[in-house]
């Protein structure tokens, strides 16, 4: 599943703040949190690990087949919104 712009303005149900942490923590914690969430809920992740946004998250979410949306919110800072679909 590729990126979906429509997620940009959706209110998140859960948030995860992993600012300042490097791999594999952002992906691993997001994965764990997604597992606990209900289908249809949206998770918002704050991270400043550029490599995670460029590589780890897209590849993980493509494998899980969840739609997501990345917003650049500052220098090296990103917000990722992920919708759990299954």
């Amino acid at each position: 599943m590729a990126e979906e712009k429509s997620l940009e303005n959706v209110k998140p149900d859960e948030t995860l703040d992993v600012l300042g942490e490097t791999c594999p923590i952002p992906e691993a914690m997001a994965h764990k949190k997604l597992n606990k969430m209900k289908v249809g809920q949206v998770l918002e992740v704050y991270t400043d690990h550029a490599a995670a946004v460029e590589n780890s998250f897209p590849s993980m979410l493509n494998k899980l087949n969840y739609p997501y949306c990345v917003t650049k919110t500052g220098p090296g800072e990103f917000t990722i919104k992920i919708k759990k679909t299954s």
Binding site: C23, P24, E27, A28, H31, A50, A51, E54, N55, S56, S59, M60, N62, K63
Partner: peptide, 20 residues
């Protein structure tokens, strides 16, 4: 280039991604 061995192996183990 984000050339990190940990990133490369973690991506491989967790998501089967081989980009790095």
């Amino acid at each position: 280039g984000r050339m990190c061995f940990v990133l490369a192996t973690n991506n491989m183990f967790m998501a089967k991604d081989t980009k790095i």
